[in-house]
Nucleic acid binder design. Structure first.
Length: 493
DNA sequence: CTGGGGACGGGGCCC
DNA sequence: TGGGCCCCGTCCCCA
């Protein structure tokens, strides 16, 4: 018995030693690759710096704004890289190697790959996607940091205590054989063999013991926090939407089931749908999934289910590059760019109009009904909205008096909002969080209203009908646009 | 020219 | 009374 046990132990030790040797070898290779990548990055920086010196037009820099990629959903992984290295519009992260995430492994150790920003510009708009050590066993996590730390502190909870560098983390949950990181330049690929990292409780996986040197540094101090996500824990109600003007036209169950599934590929902020409140860090970075749309117009709660969503404090932002609903807003990059442009050119920019105080909402204008009989009303409403829009456009501007102080700032773009929820919703632009999913298709939306509007696609409801022709529309804006056809207005001269 | 989604501001309601 | 939440309207953009 003892002999057998000894033999078994010996076998196990041999296996472990063999694996360890393989680990060391592959890690050494990874280190070499990292060094090569770093050198290339430095070369590219020099090259870009020269080009930027030569380039006299500021617009060229703007086009290559680093935020472009981020807003497209890729930036949280690549936003810190110089987007200007690549031609604008080249989708670097999404189109290349995805980060595979095994969403089914809820308790597994999260191995972290931290790619450090290498220049100040790469610091990005305060994005700090912090990796974390494995919650169960810090020793199981492996952080790989690449690049020199030149980035200035990013705007976070306390910039003064933030380490002067930006880190983007790609969390790979176990169960995934490989995490492949495609570099921004499309010339290098950093491959991390996950099987090397997933060593269970074997403390040899400790970066220090693995001889990773500085590549195996643990996360820098102050890396525990996530981008804003300071929402309070909420519940979401999945409800049968009885909103008559939207959904009653179909016999199908078109309930607006606002699922809380935060697609891990979309944004695996450690978000997980759960009902177990017993986990210790439950509330620390809990995210909110709103019950928007779960009330009918009278505010009656129709909701039934309750689920909760949380953001684990140790979970870094991770995107599955293949996810379509992340960054599927093609204009996000541009929008973000526009935001940045506005903010940079006029930090006090505001779209508030002083005339807003004069344009008290017409009660009728909020009652657009599905009936054809409302066509004339709708027509008038649309025309009135034209006037209002004009008034707004004329009165809008940076000098408009804000009745509400915009004291809630987006941590990504510093855009100000009047209330917390506004900024939370806005930040979904940057985070890609789309809590509202359609039960009829795979579409996801960041706002409840968008989902509600979208569901008309499935219901076939077209509440807005043209009074001058047979055309019907699902959106008021479409009718408004269409009416210009009858009025002889041409979009294009 | 339409369909449809992203984003955002305003207003009503509730606490 | 003020703030938060929610809904709606609107503009803009892209396919």
């Amino acid at each position: 018995m003892e002999v057998l046990a000894n033999a078994a132990v010996a076998d196990i030790c041999k296996l472990v030693d063999d694996d360890y040797a393989v680990f060391r070898l592959e890690i050494t290779q990874s280190q070499k690759e990292n060094r090569a990548l770093r050198r290339k990055l430095q070369l590219l920086e020099l090259k870009v710096a020269r080009e930027r010196v030569l380039a006299s037009r500021p617009s060229s820099v703007k086009i290559l704004d680093r935020h472009r990629g981020m807003a497209r959903g890729e930036g949280h992984l690549t936003g810190g890289h110089r987007s200007f290295v690549k031609p604008a519009g080249h989708n670097t992260w999404r189109d290349d190697q995805p980060i595979t995430v095994d969403e089914g492994s809820g308790t597994s150790t999260q191995h972290v790959i931290v790619i450090e920003s290498v220049d100040a510009e790469a610091a990005g708009p305060g994005v700090k996607l912090e990796g974390s050590e494995g919650q169960e066993d810090p020793g199981q996590s492996l952080d790989i940091q690449i690049g020199a730390a030149e980035a200035p502190p990013v705007a976070m909870e306390d910039p003064t205590t933030t380490p002067p560098r930006t880190q983007r983390s790609i969390t790979e949950v176990s169960g995934t054989p490989n995490a492949v990181l495609k570099s921004e330049t499309d010339t290098e690929t950093l491959t991390v063999a996950h099987r090397l990292l997933h060593t269970g409780s074997d403390h040899r996986s400790d970066p220090e013991e693995l001889g990773l040197g500085r590549l195996g540094c643990p996360p820098a101090p102050g890396t525990e926090y996530l981008p804003v996500f300071h929402q309070s824990q909420k519940t979401v109600n999945s409800c049968g939407n009885t909103d008559g003007d939207a959904l009653d036209t179909s016999g199908d169950d078109l309930s607006c089931f606002y699922t809380t599934e935060m697609d891990p590929g979309n944004i695996s902020l450690g978000l997980e749908t759960q009902t177990d409140l017993s986990r210790g860090d439950w509330n620390r970075y809990s995210s909110s999934v709103y019950s928007e749309g779960c009330l009918d117009k009278k505010g009656e709660v129709i909701a039934v289910d309750k689920v909760t969503v949380k953001v684990e404090d140790d979970a870094p932002l991770t995107w599955n590059a293949d996810e379509t609903h992340l960054g599927e807003g093609h204009s996000q990059g541009r929008d973000f760019l526009d935001y940045r442009e506005r903010l940079e050119t006029n930090p006090n920019v505001s779209t508030h109009s002083p005339l807003h105080t004069l344009r008290d909402r017409d009660p009728v204008s909020t009652s657009m009904g599905p009936s054809d009989s409302h066509g004339r009303v709708l027509f008038d409403q649309v025309l009135n909205s034209n006037d209002r829009a004009r008034a707004q456009a004329q009165g809008g501007g940076a000098t408009s008096g804000n009745s509400k102080e915009k004291r809630f700032l987006c941590m990504f773009c510093n855009k100000g909002f009047s209330c917390l929820q506004k900024v939370e919703i806005h930040q979904r632009v940057h985070t890609g969080v789309k809590p509202f999913s359609c039960t009829q298709c795979d579409m996801r939306f960041a706002e409840a209203g968008s989902l509600k509007r979208h569901q008309r696609v499935h219901t076939g409801e077209k509440p807005y009908s043209c009074p001058q022709c047979h055309m019907r529309f699902t959106q008021a804006g479409s009718l408004k646009r269409h009416l210009k056809v009858h009025m002889g207005e041409r979009l294009f001269a």
